[in-house]
Write a protein that binds this DNA or RNA. Structure first.
Lengths: 205, 205
DNA sequence: GCTATATGTAATCATCGATTACATCCACAT
DNA sequence: ATGTGGATGTAATCGATGATTACATATAGC
């Protein structure tokens, strides 16, 4: 990345474009992003990006895929290594990891969750990663039920949705600007932590 | 509205523009909306809308205000008239009214909740209505706690956030297309109903 | 080396949000 | 009634944008 300066070909424009896109979105928000400026920042002509991404949505989808990978990674890191851990505690860890990542990477989370800007259904990768988290939580809930941690005739299907919606709701509220003043790791996250803990507690039999 | 046909002045362009905006968004989504087509559909020149709304965001903000009024109305209708009702049941009713409205009016809900497209902070009306719902729920939770329906030392602040996030999360998931196939009043709403009931039940002492 | 292909450029289009100067209409004071 | 000023709509135009096309240049494999 140091001195290849003036070669006709960029080398790896695709990744450079993704990086530039993230930069711009960090600075000016998801709106206010133009392919032209992405191109300019990568040092190429305005039409060049379309060689690698057939549309602006395709570019953003690529960014979303990269972001989703990090989100999944964060969620996995957050889980306890011990596989015998209390399933509900494990769910809480997942939720917390999700929330921490979402609040600390609002830009990326916004891209991942706003499906009007990206082609979610067109990306098998995105769907896989999305389903991965969901089935993981479904498994944990199933295990919790078999361990007798939930009410006997618990509606697991509804509970899976509950967990997803609860965490998604908190993350989305933050990303959508429902917390007027805040800064990452500040009080809102603390509040969210307490809310999450209460929520998990409420599920216990 | 029948035969004023060819008068230079439209009469009430502002509301006609809002209506046209909603129409277009219903047809083609929030993106894919252009002020020009709004103008065309209202039968005026491309610049005319800017006499009434200083920007595209201002137009969408007006749409959001109208939508928010309906949402608030739906939430109020959903509540039990009897003011001695169980506070937690009242909260459940509010949540259900919110969810039903959001799922039956996905377009409007999307506009209300996506604050990147509208000038939320610039609209006192929007903030008031938003705060109205929140304080209403805070009051109900306070009352529930005093009635001993919650655990003794319940964290009311966290609980208010929990309720908001839970309902918002469900509504947003629906609006964001997290339920692949569905149609209003169909199974997803049923599932959401069950999830909401479980959630409220989980808060009970 | 020669050539097929991948990659970037230049030029161009239609569309969009927004602004400006001008036209038209309506209400109100006289 | 009148005619004047503010409100409302039109016409023309600007700069930026997403996207496409024809062309130039570099790279890889034979």
């Amino acid at each position: 990345m140091t001195e290849q300066e003036k070669s006709y070909h960029h080398g790896n424009l695709a990744s450079a474009l993704i990086a530039a896109t993230v930069e711009i979105i960090d600075e000016r928000g998801v709106d206010g992003l133009s392919v032209r400026e992405v191109a300019k920042r990568a040092g190429v002509s305005p039409g060049a990006p379309f060689r690698h991404f057939s549309s602006k949505a395709a570019l953003l989808t690529a960014v979303a895929e990269q972001a989703m990978e990090r989100l999944v990674a964060a969620v996995e890191v957050a889980q306890a290594d011990d596989d015998d851990t209390d399933p509900l505690a494990q769910i809480e860890r997942i939720g917390l990891g999700y929330l921490e990542w979402a609040t600390q990477n609002p830009t990326h989370f916004q891209i991942v969750s706003s499906r009007s800007l990206i082609d979610f259904n067109g990306s098998a990768t995105l769907r896989q990663m999305n389903d991965g988290i969901r089935t993981r939580m479904a498994d944990l809930l199933e295990r919790a039920q078999q361990a007798g941690q939930l009410t006997a005739n618990a509606d697991t299907e509804a509970l899976v949705l509950s967990c997803r919606a609860f965490v998604y709701g908190l993350a989305r509220m933050a990303a959508d600007g429902h917390f007027p003043e805040w800064h990452p790791n500040g009080e809102p996250l603390d509040l969210m932590r307490r809310a999450l803990a209460d929520f998990i507690a409420g599920m216990r039999a």
